[in-house]
Design a protein around this nucleic acid. Sequence first.
RNA 1: GCCCAGGUGGCGGAAUUGGUAUACGCGCAGGAUUAAGGAUCCUGUGGGGAAACCCUUGCGGGUUCGAGUCCCGCCCUGGGCACCA
Length: 755
Amino acid sequence: MDAYDPKQIEPKWQKFWEDRGFFKVKEDPSKKKYYLLEMLPYPSGRIHMGHVRNYTIGDVACRYRKMRGFDVLHPMGWDAFGLPAENAAIKQKTHPAKWTHENIDTMRAQLQSLGFSYDWDREVATCDPDYYRWEQLVFLKMFAKGLVYRKASAVNWCAGCETVLANEQVVAGKCWRCDTPVTQKKLEQWYFKITDYTEELLNDIDDKLQGWPERVKAMQKEWIGKSEGCEIDFEVEVSKEKIRVFTTRPDTIFGVTFMALACEHPLLLKLAEKGGCKREIEKFIAKTAKIERMKRLAGEYEKEGELTGAYCLHPVTKARLPIYAANFVLMDYGTGAIMGVPGHDERDFEFAKKYNLPVKKLEEFVEAKGLGKKTVTFRLKDWLISRQRYWGTPIPVIYCKKCGIVPVPEKDLPVILPKDVSFSGKGGSSLAKHKAFVETKCPQCKAVARRETDTMDTFVESSWYFLRYISPKYNQGPVDPKEAAYWMPIDQYIGGIEHAVGHLIYCRFFTKVLRDLGFLKLDEPVKNLMTQGMVCLGGAAMSKSRGNIVDPDQIIEKYGADTARLFILFAAPVEKDLEWSDEAVEGMWRFLGRVWKGTVDRGPWTMDQQKEAWKHKTIKRVTEDIEKFHFNTAIAALMEYLNSGEMDAETMVILLSPFAPHMAEELWAILGRKESVLKQPWPQWDPKFLENQTMQIVVQVNGKLRGDFEVDAGASEEVIKQKAQELEKVRAHTAGKQIKKIIYVPKKLVNIVVC
RNA sequence: GCCCAGGUGGCGGAAUUGGUAUACGCGCAGGAUUAAGGAUCCUGUGGGGAAACCCUUGCGGGUUCGAGUCCCGCCCUGGGCACCA
């Protein structure tokens, strides 16, 4: 027989699956539906090992579910808008669309060469007008419902990308894409009112996300950052104006010795003027805005304040409290003003005691006296979605001098992103310089008007793409409601942990919005979530900039897709980081070679008790491990099966097929089977073969291992205890000692306790 | 600072309703094959010891006949949040 040659067999079976439409999926009410989804890639150029890992995990789950008789929807698409396409356009003098589509073609071919089981008829690219027109429609519906608004405020600005960023895109004070330190800029921008959904987003974490990792749920709760407290008014001396502070500890009110305001606080300058310290405060504001911002974001930061010269009165004691401007008080959290309680717990506690006020009652006391009221503050802020970039979904809005902000009428959708733009690199969005796009008529008064030239954050596209796969050609809305009712929710979602608070909150938000807009009848999009670890080399995540990349194509070229898939599953548990090892890849190659040889060269074959026992034990282990995503131990079980010398080739090939599908198909054919191995039902194990005729009993003396013996499965406790004591080594340790007691763990162990 | 996850051979990792620690793979050593190398196959492989045995799951206590697993106290690593009032 020929040696194992993946180069020959892999393309052959990929074509076989393709020609027969094996992965095309339709609604099939005779089966149970299973929506399996992996996070879609950004078409950056080539597939990297992180993709291979993510999609191999998904592919095993898909093939397994199909063999278990599920109707599996397993689609793939492209998160195709984004800044790298524009940067490439500038650098390589090409067009973002061309660059993107070429990358998609390359990466699609790479995914196909790995044998992944996608229904390519449902492929979606988010830069396609047929895709983003529905996003624009959703935008308009959200606008009509008040879920989209425009607001001027200090926003995160990345000078490298020349655009604003959402809070979720600022990581440790730096831009998530290019690492440029983020600065603040005052701009008028578009926002999605995600804060309308804060309570629901928070409550559903515990109520409806039982299939999510605790880690992700904890991260989302922290991100939403609910904190309950009290708002209390402090009267300003002389002017009778009131300053409202937020505190989570109203019980510390008697410890207040000063008040501090954020530099952006609207009353600050007025107070400073009154206090005669206007110049000092202005200087302080300028200093804080300029230098401190950078330090603040970097985490190195010194607490500083400046007296306004003004005073406020303690609401209970009427004591005079100095008002400061302070650089650590944030305008966008609470009320932008705090009450200073330097002594915090102990002193406050004593103070309260002195005035005979029970600590627990202070909150009620504050409320009853009308000094303040209970409030809830969240960390989560509205989602800033406008981007000053060309390669994104145009925001469907027109500015008219007379009518103001006018939404584009639905019948005029899509607002198409023009292709004929020039890319200079600097000086703002290319779209804003496109006259024919910018100049338009007001849909209401027909006067000359200007189109919005900002585009949407690319995270908007990925917030609902999973719905488009369901009915990719549907032309009455983003998703066919009937099909959505059948396929949603996503039964299993697989992707990187880095999306825990960005994408995975946004897509939950969008689902709720689409529900409230009448597109869906669903509260949560994802039933079960699996987050896989990173692929590392030399202890650090593989990345182009670090130069520690292993190219998947090289591995496929040298060993084939099956070896690559097997290695990436075997090397580490799926949720942990994986360290790349060329030697371990060799090990997988050897394993597959031995499976090949063992199957192809197998001699006359008859099952016996021993072989049945191995077979059923292996089916059980592999099945249970796949269900739990314990692919590394599932593969180990297959290795042990091979090593046992009791391997039944048919069973081996079927169990191996989700992991190494090409080899499995080839071997299945060599074994003389006509149908594809994918059409085989997943085997069941029969417990009756798992029961051994004999059992091994381990013997301990005082908890230390002293021997073992084989005994008939039906042996009685007395016989076993007797046999245990007769073992030579056991006698050596019990001789001359008194046996206190003998513990028997059925079918496993005897422990003889002596003095 | 607060919260979460983890710490097991030379390495990746198995095993937790408490019951044979180190499965499986890599690496290493010896052997077979080969003119030789590579590839492949076989055997061995936690540490100490001639052996009997003893020691070993980050460290220190505890519970138990028996602890990688449970309890208490520490140390370290990774991740998340953070001048959030």
